[in-house]
Computed example of a mutant assay.
Amino acid sequence: MTTHTNPATVTVIGLGAMGRALAGAFLDAGHRTTVWNRSPGKGEELVARGAVRAASAEEAVRASELVVVCVVDHEASRQILAPLTDALAGRALVDLTSDTPDRVRASAAWAEAHSLDYLAGAIMVPIEVVGGPEALIFYSGSRSAYDRHEAVLKALGANVPFLGPEHALAAAYDMAMLDFFYGSMAGLVHAFALAGAESIPAAAIAPYLRTIVDILPPIVAGTAVDIDAKRYDGAGANLAMMTAGVDHVLHAAAGRGLDTSHLEAIKAVSDRAVAKGHGADSWASTVEALRG
């Protein structure tokens, strides 16, 4: 945590679990923090720590040079902000609400129509990590807002890359990374279910899954290079062989009465890639089937 000798004025709109974590991180860094939430009864602990509770959204916006929004989605964000364009003028608006790239583009178009300095962001860590050195938060959109407030935004986490002027970039990174996360979590839980169907406790197999986890970093890096280059060398492990492996897991799970829908989806994609002539290529070639 870095405490600033020249604290900024920051407003946080939205006091769900993540919004409270953001406001808490600003307070920890010594910034003068104003908070507001649509429904009452949230943020008492922040006020006890020195935050100012605004009586209205407009009062909250006018209190600070930097306004941070974190609500359920961009529709909710725009509903709150739409009446406040006059109050937002001359301030930096940072929207850390998670949503799809297209919805972020709609918010950016609204902000541009009202000449607002708008920076979109995506928080890539759970609330427990916010404010710490491992926190990763992407930003895209207004470079001027980012440059002016980068030091303040680092109160939320040390890793705050600016991805570019296209506002939806942060959301696009967010969706891609969550795609990987949720797919990985689904695979993990299904693996435990399959082990359990053979009377193997999850805790017994968990240490050995580290073998899979440890080989992922070079696989991630190599697959990224291969997909960008459209080069799918399958000399080490080809798609036809790995598709057969998926089929084995699918039948083992089906034989134990487990849900196999995600395995069927994986096999359907790999089958399409093989049918397109990628049987001798690497697993990275399945991207061609995903692209239709």
Rank of each mutant, 00 (worst) to 15 (best):
59 E>F: 15
158 A>Y: 00
282 S>F: 08
92 A>Y: 06
41 G>D: 10
24 G>K: 09
14 G>I: 01
203 A>E: 11
218 P>R: 06
223 T>M: 11
76 A>I: 00
288 E>N: 09
288 E>A: 12
127 I>Q: 15
110 W>G: 04
279 G>H: 09
103 R>Q: 08
156 L>R: 00
137 I>R: 01
231 R>W: 09
41 G>F: 14
207 P>K: 11
22 L>W: 10
37 N>W: 03
84 L>H: 02
4 H>Y: 14
15 L>F: 11
157 G>T: 03
265 A>W: 07
109 A>D: 15
36 W>R: 05
216 L>A: 13
5 T>Q: 12
3 T>I: 15
69 V>A: 15
165 P>G: 10
237 A>R: 09
52 V>K: 15
155 A>V: 08
232 Y>F: 12
290 L>Y: 13
233 D>I: 09
38 R>H: 05
71 V>N: 05
148 R>Y: 09
186 A>Y: 09
241 M>L: 14
236 G>W: 00
259 D>F: 01
226 D>I: 05
210 R>D: 10
168 A>W: 05
289 A>F: 15
263 L>D: 02
253 A>H: 04
40 P>R: 10
184 S>G: 08
95 D>W: 13
209 L>Q: 02
155 A>D: 03
68 V>Q: 06
175 M>S: 08
53 R>K: 11
205 I>P: 05
265 A>P: 00
197 A>F: 06
8 A>I: 05
38 R>M: 11
274 V>M: 14
35 V>K: 00
287 V>H: 00
174 D>W: 03
98 S>W: 00
148 R>F: 03
12 V>P: 03
45 E>W: 09
189 V>N: 10
27 L>W: 09
66 L>W: 04
163 L>G: 02
155 A>M: 04
195 A>C: 03
48 A>S: 09
5 T>W: 00
178 L>K: 07
247 D>S: 07
249 V>A: 10
220 V>Q: 08
282 S>Q: 00
120 A>V: 04
154 K>G: 04
186 A>Q: 13
118 Y>F: 14
200 I>A: 02
67 V>W: 11
90 G>E: 05
177 M>R: 04
270 S>N: 14
172 A>H: 02
91 R>Q: 06
277 G>V: 13
213 V>G: 13
96 L>Y: 11
264 E>F: 01
173 Y>E: 04
209 L>N: 01
214 D>Y: 05
130 V>P: 04
52 V>A: 15
45 E>N: 11
100 T>Y: 06
261 S>V: 06
21 A>F: 10
3 T>R: 15
182 Y>D: 11
50 G>S: 10
56 S>F: 07
170 A>N: 03
21 A>T: 03
31 H>T: 01
76 A>C: 02
143 R>L: 12
242 M>Q: 10
178 L>M: 15
119 L>R: 01
86 D>E: 14
199 S>C: 12
81 L>Y: 04
191 A>R: 01
56 S>E: 04
158 A>D: 02
208 Y>G: 00
41 G>N: 08
11 T>K: 02
259 D>T: 01
248 H>Q: 12
86 D>V: 09
258 L>R: 12
214 D>R: 13
154 K>A: 01
165 P>W: 08
75 E>M: 10
101 P>T: 11
